[in-house]
Design a protein around this nucleic acid. Sequence first.
DNA 1: ATGACTGCCTCTGGCAGA
Length: 257
Amino acid sequence: MKIATYNINGIKARLPRLKDWLAETQPTVACLQEIKCQDDSFPADEFAELGYRAIWHGQKSFNGVAILARDVQPVEAMRGLPGDHDDEQARYLEADVNGVRIVCIYLPNGNPQPGPKFDYKLAWMDRLCTRLETLWTQEIPCAVLGDFNVIPEDSDIWAPKAMADDALMQPQSRAAWSRLLAAGWTDAVRTLNPRGGVWTYWDYQAGAWQRGHGFRIDHLLLSPELADRLEAVGVDRDHRGREKASDHAPVWANLRD
DNA sequence: ATGACTGCCTCTGGCAGA
């Protein structure tokens, strides 16, 4: 089973790139973020032609998440992150695929900090922590994939000083990340790359891609049953270098069947 | 170096992203 996450930065603008990636890499499950479309304009037919069925949670202009599965229909388990009835941002979707609970998240960016957007990010992380505790107690095989908008450690960025004041690497953001993992979740990419140096995002500006100025914010967390099956992880870097690419690259993990 | 780019939905410029 190959599970993947990809912040596509606009599904309309990225559809040809996205279809190429699915056809070439054939993930079993693909979690998408920043689809930036309303529910009635999600191109489900385009994915069906490639053998992928989907569920999605969109909104106008911003945010939006989707879960694609090869040859099977993902069964929706949760839409929207519990804990705040006033939160209307489309950032959270859960589904069951082949007996595995898939959690697709687009965690708030939080800039500028300090400020209300940073407060929203930290509150969102608290709510996520609560939800993951609930899933943990249910003891079902579970993977949490997405754009976490957190750079966990200094070895996860090309130059820590370049982002020192950014919400993505503030102590509060990192502390919340640590609380998420504390229950026992496995950071799949870190586990197989303990020294860091793996990037999943390169800014469009200042030639960041060409200069190798990236960092790691797209993550896969595995429950113990899935962590025991972890055999490989990777970043599809070549897709970041293509024409009309997203500023993120796809990240994946292979789990033994 | 106070720079740099891209997508969205148009108030084709302002916002959001990271």
